[in-house]
Amino acid sequence: MNFGGPMPRRSIQCLSELRTHCARWLEPLENLAMSILYFFHPACRLHETSPGHPENGARLDAINDQLIASGVDPWLMSREAPAVTREQLERVHATAYLDALENAAPAESICYLDPDTVIGPHSIEAARHAAGAVVAAVDAVMTGDPRRAFCAVRPPGHHATRTRAMGFCLYNNVAVGTAHALAEYGLERVVVVDFDVHHGNGTEDIFHDEARVFMASSFEKDLWVESSPQKAGDNMLWLEFAPGTQSAAYRERFEKELLPAVDAFRPQLLMISAGFDAHHDDEISHLYLTSEDYGWLTQKLTEIADPHCEGRLVSVLEGGYNLAALGRSVAAHLNALLD
């Protein structure tokens, strides 16, 4: 053994080889820690709406195209979503409602459930996989790595109440996933942050009296009367923004009011209803956020998830109807989840 002199050349070579082998072995683990689970299902593309309807399959295409163009795609671990079970749906929806929804699905063409909400031959299948994606995402982040997941699914869900489809939504996807986390993992504190430009009235309806869930919703005031919030309970926080609100004012209230309330709840799992329709290019609303704002608010939420939840976070697509803005905003959102 040589304790004082230079290391023999063969030892140096062996050490170099060891480092090379270790780097090759560690690289997949490093990539895993830096990746995001990306849940999808082809059926979600087949959910039909009427011509000109803002909620259509081209939304998913726009997201996929932008994720490739922005360089985010290689960091995504794609998973095809399973279908939700009836038991999982009945945790948040009434049995009679589920039966009526299935009976309403036409064999051909489309049927309007209300002036905004459409159901077609493939809609139930799409909705089952959309809700199933969130259940699978919860299972994944609760039991292993990566600890962050995004569900690129449609139809959206946050307007669906316990007994009613509305606002483009059939099943309340984020609520199904949240209820699954409570039932299967015994969690005592789950936060749902909804930053869609419309209030998540369906999620409010389902969890209004559930002390284990804290819901924080930021939205444009009086944008859509059907989603107007009720009086917030102790487990709910509303951030109403006046039409015309721009980035600086939005960020200030988000940081001073919403984030401290979420942090104080000390969530064991963070769920996001990720709507991107408050973007200044989205004609459905009158707020003026940018794609960079979505990256900023996402990073702020990860700073809460990391210490409280060990990073466990599931994000679920809701609104966003200007295709270019939607793609850029989702890319910014996922980039922030990676960071």
Rank of each mutant, 00 (worst) to 15 (best):
D306I: 12
A332I: 15
G327Q: 08
P146K: 10
D61G: 07
T178H: 08
S11P: 00
L15D: 04
D277Q: 01
L326P: 03
L259I: 12
I304F: 00
S291K: 10
T302E: 05
R162I: 04
G200K: 02
H198W: 05
S273F: 11
A133F: 06
T161P: 02
S291W: 02
H159F: 04
W75Q: 14
V213A: 07
D205K: 03
W224T: 07
A107M: 11
S315K: 08
L323K: 05
D205C: 04
V262D: 10
D293M: 13
H208L: 10
F150W: 11
R128Q: 15
E303S: 03
S78K: 09
S217Y: 08
R189K: 12
T85Y: 05
V176G: 07
D114H: 02
L46A: 15
D73G: 05
D281N: 11
F40K: 07
L317R: 05
M215S: 11
G244M: 09
P121M: 07
E204C: 11
A104G: 01
Q246S: 14
A69Q: 15
A305R: 02
N172H: 06
N172F: 04
G275L: 06
Y321I: 01
R154N: 09
F254L: 15
V316I: 14
N31K: 13
P28A: 09
R147Q: 13
A274V: 08
G177P: 02
L289R: 05
A33K: 13
A105D: 00
K300H: 01
C151W: 01
D209I: 04
R189G: 04
S16N: 00
M142G: 13
V138W: 13
L37D: 05
H122E: 15
A181N: 10
E48Y: 00
H21P: 00
P54E: 01
N235C: 00
L76S: 04
K221Y: 13
A175P: 10
G144A: 15
M34Y: 08
V174K: 06
V191T: 09
R189C: 04
F276N: 02
F276A: 01
I272L: 15
D116L: 11
S329H: 12
R9Y: 00
F241G: 09
L101A: 04
R19G: 06
S291C: 14
T95L: 06
A324Y: 06
A23K: 13
T163D: 15
S228H: 10
I36K: 02
A152I: 06
L98F: 03
L223P: 03
G295F: 07
L289K: 05
A232S: 00
R328L: 15
N2P: 12
D73L: 11
M1L: 12
E17F: 01
V92R: 02
D194Q: 09
F214L: 14
R253P: 11
Y112E: 12
D99E: 14
L289W: 13
N172Q: 09
R162T: 10
A160P: 03
V138L: 14
G233I: 02
N64E: 15
E220N: 11
P307N: 12
L76D: 06
Y112R: 09
E125K: 10
R148Y: 12
L258Q: 13
H129S: 13
R45D: 14
M271P: 09
